[in-house]
Nucleic acid binder design. Structure first.
Length: 803
RNA sequence: GGGAGUUUAGCUCAGUUGGUAGAGUACCUGCCUUACAAGCAGAGGGUCAUAGGUUCGAGUCCUAUAACUCCCACCA
């Protein structure tokens, strides 16, 4: 029996506890059902969960529920990405410290403590939204288990020659003081200026004009270059070029990459102004001149500018260039500069020993694997292809940071050769552990690697972590490739791409069959809501408690797959209406079903009609859901539900109330139909609104159906034989007969229950209408129906005058 | 510079294989109908971004264009 009013605030936590206590969402490794495995994104622990997470996690959670109720044994873990730079930056910000000032061990401890607190909060919030993850499958990327798999990945790649250590130019963030990868860059518009400078021909009065946006790097100039086909500048070949302000000379080289018609066609190469400089550095074996230190200040090489920050130095250098007559002209420009996505600092390049995973020589393979995966929505694959196409650097995975997975390497003190740990000894921390082998050169002294792995180097093995790679072969075989990876579109080039790379190198297979790409929650001004920017206006948990979990979940169905979503008051109001209506409908029909056990009887036409409508809706529902279009599936369901209430129940209630008038058989037909249709519909609602659906089920159908939870049931069609025109026939009755009478009453401003003496229905085929006569009369309070043969028409008779 | 998405009612969005423009919401008019007034019924409201083209017929297919959002690249 359902109570009179649904109190969601009371019910939701109680129901969540019920699911937890009864293991409703537990993955059963022994089950014979087909497996559906989800590579849940482990949220980065670097701030507070906001409604953007709630929306994207809930959207993918719909799929877990859909598959679970479609007969799959769903493997739906939850994890936390709780190591790496994002966490370090959060800790630095919230504690007002700098990692390198605090010291490695103390800072690591601070990070551990912080993530533990945050993870409790994360978990509480996800549970409060009714997330159906199996919390027993929880993993943390910072745990020793994850570290072992991450290091195993490292060692495996090293053994397969897909990983190398090199003193090579790498992208560098001077604020975070670490190398970063190409995928961690974003572009920012920046005001700058082209400086057209005089570079002097050594020993001559002549000069050549060279434009640069980075004159502070003059001190690091290695050479100037022209295109080999450049006739205009051919005379420069074999000459020395004298650098303004610094007065040293550099040679002139030629390279195809130099564009003749850009500026004067002469370009300077510094170590390093941009990625092209890095390329020339390697190609021509140039001298490394470090002008900028790790923290973004000019080095001694810059002479009088040493110690200044890059931008300060630039301003001073420009001043001096003008004062000394080296400046020809300046041109203000706005251009896109590459910045570190985490802090917005303009990217530099520097030279250190770094570890790289080879990504450049397998582009075709990456594309091929991309094609093997089903992308939902399909157009999102273009972003992946674009990214792969334009990869320009191998993936640098070493980070000069503290809180992360250690790189399992030592270096020989004598010859510098890396000593990579053996797989069987993992996990190791080279700062604590000693290598178990000696260098090939025979030297027994070593130095530990102090760098750690990029956080993506670990999160890119979540399928291997989840599927127990090299831990439990049987489980791995069963779960890998995983069925689904859901994530937002910003991490296609990082998380998705890197996971594909690892999947190929380690397991020679795609990591998943399907990718589901979600949009963002947008704050004002078209800005995405983000943890690190902390621009969410709401306390997430309060927000959920205030609106209730089901209503918040309803809101997340309002955007199409891959589309950005906005906070919209109306959607919440609408969600509350749906929850309320569902509960009321359940309460109402249960009045007639208490103690009832569904027995299949001969069904009346309108009962067959609503069953056929349900089945049709179910077809569309699954068609959309199979494409991960949860929003369209919900639309189908909602439309059906309203039709069920406003048309079917209105018809059925007369028979349910008054069997003495309409007959016991008519009542039984309505009982059976409302039971079977509502029950099946309720299961579908359970995917989106799991709490209210459970509350209804527990107090109604459970007694007869015996499943512990509505979420343990299976969705499906309703078995019923009906002729193919049943939907059109029933729609005619509802829309064109009942509808027209309703219109008549409304236009005449009379109550819907006002009685009508008679109506005359004209139609070519009257069989179906005649079979529904009692229903039509009852629902519209009509005394008599007259029939005529011909084109469809309806004439409404007199209103019965009240006494 | 290359690419993707979007453009349909005041607002939020559906619209399958081309066949008379749909829903919710808001607004308006009614109705206390033995579940729900957080409800029910009804009405008005659209040059389907623009311009061409294919077709008997285009919101839908093709070609341009525009605006907004995003991705990538270039950044001497």
């Amino acid at each position: 029996m359902l109570s009179n009013k649904y109190n969601a605030s009371e019910a939701e936590p109680r129901i969540q506890k019920f699911w937890q206590d009864n293991g409703v969402y537990k993955y059963d490794p022994k089950s014979k059902k087909p497996t559906f495995s989800i590579d849940t994104p482990p949220p980065t622990v670097n701030g507070h969960i906001h409604l953007g997470h709630i929306s994207s996690y809930t959207q993918s959670e719909f799929v877990a529920r859909y598959k679970r109720m479609s007969g799959y044994n769903v493997f739906y873990p939850f994890g936390f990405d709780d190591n790496g730079l994002p966490t370090e930056l959060y800790v630095e910000k919230t504690h007002g410290v700098k990692a390198y000032e605090v010291g490695r061990e103390k800072f690591r401890q601070l990070c551990y403590d912080t993530v533990q607190e945050l993870e409790e909060e994360f978990k509480e919030i996800f549970i409060a939204t009714g997330n159906s993850a199996d919390w027993d499958l929880m993993y943390h990327t910072v745990s020793l288990d994850s570290q072992r798999i991450s290091q195993t990945s490292f060692v495996d790649l090293y053994n397969k020659n897909k990983l190398y250590c090199a003193l090579a130019p790498a992208l560098w963030c001077t604020k975070c003081r670490t190398s970063i990868a190409q995928s961690e860059l974003e572009t920012k518009e920046s005001e700058s200026c082209f400086n057209y400078l005089r570079f002097y021909l050594d020993g001559e009065d002549n000069f050549v004009e060279i434009a640069t946006t980075r004159p502070e790097l003059l001190c690091a100039c290695d050479c100037v270059l022209i295109n080999p086909k450049d006739e205009k500048n051919k005379h420069l070949l074999n000459k020395k070029i004298r650098i303004p302000l610094y007065n040293f000379t550099v040679p002139v080289l030629t390279d195809d990459k130099v564009e003749m018609d850009k500026g004067s066609g002469v370009v300077m190469c510094c170590t390093f102004g941009d990625q092209t400089d890095a390329l020339w550095f390697k190609k021509y074996n140039l001298e490394y001149k470090q002008a900028i230190d790790d923290g973004g200040r000019m080095t001694e090489l810059a002479g009088k500018y040493a110690g200044l920050k890059v931008k300060e130095a630039r301003a001073k250098v420009i001043e001096d260039l003008i004062a000394n007559g080296h400046m020809i002209r300046q041109e203000n420009i706005t251009h896109q500069v590459s910045v570190h996505e985490r802090c917005g600092t303009e990217m530099e390049i520097n030279l250190k020993r770094q570890w790289f995973i080879k990504t450049l020589d397998c582009k075709e393979q990456w594309k091929k694997l991309g094609n093997e995966i089903n992308w939902h929505p399909t157009f999102m694959k273009a972003r992946y292809d674009d990214w792969v196409e334009n990869l320009s650097m191998d993936w640098c995975i070493s980070r000069q940071k503290y809180f992360g997975v250690p790189i399992p390497v030592w270096y020989c003190k004598k010859c510098g050769t890396p000593i990579v740990a053996d797989e069987k000894d993992l996990p190791v921390n080279p700062l604590v552990d000693a290598p178990k082998k000696v260098c090939k050169c025979g030297c027994t002294e070593y130095e530990p690697e102090i760098d750690i792995l990029d956080t993506w180097a670990t999160s890119s093995v979540t399928p291997q972590i989840n599927c127990k790679w090299k831990v439990d072969d049987e489980t791995f075989k069963k779960l890998y490739p995983m069925s689904l990876r859901p994530n937002a579109h910003d991490i296609i080039r990082t998380w998705d791409f890197y996971t594909i790379v690892k999947g190929f190198y380690h397991n020679n297979a795609r990591p998943w069959d399907n990718l589901m790409i979600m949009g963002f929650l947008m704050a004002d001004k078209g800005q995405k809501v983000s943890k690190s920017k902390n621009n969410s206006k709401h306390s997430t948990l309060d927000f959920i408690k205030n609106y209730t979990a089901d209503v918040v979940r309803y809101w997340t169905t309002s955007s199409g797959l891959g589309r950005d979503i906005m906070l919209n008051e109306d959607t919440f109001k609408n969600g509350a209406k749906v929850v309320n209506k569902l509960y009321n409908a359940g309460k109402f029909i249960w009045q007639f079903l208490e103690g009832y056990k569904p027995v299949k009887t001969d069904l009346l036409p309108m009962d067959k009609w609503i069953i056929a409508k349900y089945n049709k809706m179910f077809e569309n529902f699954t068609k959309n859901f199979d494409k991960y279009e949860f929003s369209l599936a919900m639309n189908e369901l909602e439309t059906f539900f309203w039709n069920f209430c406003d048309n079917y129940i209105e018809i059925a209630k007369n028979r349910l109330w008054k069997p003495e008038v309409y007959g016991e058989k008519a009542k039984q037909s309505a009982q059976y139909t409302s039971y079977i249709v509502f029950y099946n519909m309720l299961k579908l609602f359970g995917i989106f609104l799991p709490h209210v659906s459970e509350e209804i089920y527990q107090n109604t159908f459970k007694e007869n159906e015996k499943f512990i939870s509505i979420h343990s049931t299976t969705i499906g069609k309703i078995e019923e034989a009906y002729n193919p025109t049943i939907i059109a026939d029933g729609d005619l009755v509802v829309n064109d007969i009942v509808g027209r009478v309703r219109q008549f009453k409304s236009e005449n401003k009379i109550s819907l229950k006002t009685e009508i003496e008679d109506i005359t229905v004209t139609n070519n085929n009257l069989d179906f209408i005649k079979a529904c006569e009692e229903d039509i009369k009852a629902v519209m309070s009509i005394h008599k129906i007259n029939y005529k043969t011909g084109e469809f028409d309806i004439a409404i008779g007199k209103v019965v005058e009240e006494n």
